[in-house]
Amino acid sequence: MRIKSTLENYLFVLPAVVIFAIFYIIPFIWVFQLGLYEWDGIMPTKTFVGLGNFREIMQDKIWWQSMVNAGYITIIALTFQNALAFLLAWACDREIRLKNFYRMVFFIPPVLSEVVVGLVWQWILDGNYGLLNNWLIQLGFPNLARNWLSDPKTALTTVAVIHSWKGFGWGFLIFLAGLQTIPKELYEAARVDGANAWQSFRKVTIPLMIPVAVLVSILTILGTMQAFVLIIAMTGGGPAYHTQVPVLRILAAMRGSSRFGYACAQGISFGVILMAISFIQYRFTKKARQA
């Protein structure tokens, strides 16, 4: 009876397990296997190269340049994007007029299509007919007008800022939820003890928001390092390699060079690096909290 009941339970979850295995586990294992081969994605035969693809990645200067570019975009996201998200969440957590309207508006950028956002910003930032340069000239700053996406000095930072604009809504939502879980009694107690607004913020809000900030920063790192749709829409990875990111390199290996094995090896390397970053960050924040 008990065995039958247990078997029935497993039978109910079997379809989900089978689908998960087919679409996640098997492809995951297959990626590791393909990383050891040279394969063009078409021929039925593959050439075993062992760790050759991984050795090539170690010497691939463009791959590491793309990692640096992704790291730069991530740093901008961790600072500018998350600071903006937190400040806006803090503002919307207070009793202000049109609070609900602001909450809705701030969540619009993340739900927009990345391709649409990229193309719209491309037009705004166009060096010849773009709105931004037009405004700068009208405001009396013609020397600031430039080709934001084609100038190697500004392309990566511009892409990073637009990415932060697109992504801050998620952090805003999570920070807002976190702020709303802080008991109001703690603020009242702080007020009774004579704490001013800044002291309440420093002694009550910030310590209680640290776990939320850790979660947001982990999600920011993982999400931003994998950014590529916005970059394809705005710059295509150019000019030259100035806005190349790891996912674009993986796509280039697959579609441009027809080197599926090398692309899989890049994907594995990238995944390992992201896991290492997440682990280091988790350990660091755990130690900081314990301290």
Partner: peptide, 21 residues
Amino acid sequence: LYNGIVTMINKTAEQLFANDK
């Protein structure tokens, strides 16, 4: 050369030329 040609996709190029830009 058009200012910004290095990051231009062909569809954008077609739009610019078609619109006398």
